[in-house]
Computed example of a mutant assay.
Amino acid sequence: MIRGIRGATTVTSNDAEEIVDATEELLRHMIQANGIKASDVVSVLISVTDDLTAAFPAQALRRIEGWTYVPVMCTREIPVPGSLPGCIRIMMTAQTAKAQDEVIHIYLRNAVQLRPDLSLTKKTDL
């Protein structure tokens, strides 16, 4: 079955290293929590808020061994007034045997407020 796996995180500044590092952290949590292999991934879509322009967060995927050939694209979020600033969101589409309610979506840092109902609150949950 093909499933969407969501994740989001935030950064404190428009700094290239911070953006790529935070994206890598999020990707690694998503991969680990869901037991995803690169060969199971259809594509990864990464969006950022308008205030993040210092780097392409997709660079983070290339830091992960074995993920060289996974298609990845970056885009901008809709700039809704009052939305969470400094936010990086990921939609990973992958093949998995998990039922939709078994997929673990990851929300880190200030992004926990986006979906508190789906957020893991302890690192031991991962």
Rank of each mutant, 00 (worst) to 15 (best):
V70Y: 04
S83M: 11
G35H: 06
D101H: 14
C74F: 08
R3F: 04
I36A: 01
I46C: 02
A58G: 14
A111N: 08
I2Y: 12
V20T: 04
G82N: 07
P85K: 08
D51L: 06
M30N: 00
E102Q: 15
H29Y: 11
V42A: 06
G86L: 08
Q59Y: 14
S43Y: 12
E18A: 15
T10A: 06
A111R: 02
H29N: 10
W67I: 01
T53E: 04
V42E: 11
L126W: 07
L114N: 01
L45Y: 12
A60Y: 00
T124L: 03
E77P: 01
I31C: 03
V70W: 03
M30D: 00
T75E: 12
P81I: 02
V20M: 04
V20N: 03
I64K: 10
A33C: 13
V80R: 12
Q32N: 11
P79L: 13
V20R: 06
I64W: 05
P85M: 06
I104P: 02
L27F: 05
C74Q: 15
P116A: 09
D40M: 08
D50F: 08
A16P: 00
D15L: 00
P116L: 13
I106Y: 03
S83N: 09
I78A: 15
T9Y: 02
R62D: 10
D15W: 05
A99E: 12
V48H: 02
P81E: 10
A97S: 13
K123G: 00
R109L: 13
V112R: 15
G4Q: 14
V72Y: 02
R109M: 10
T124E: 06
S39Y: 10
P79E: 04
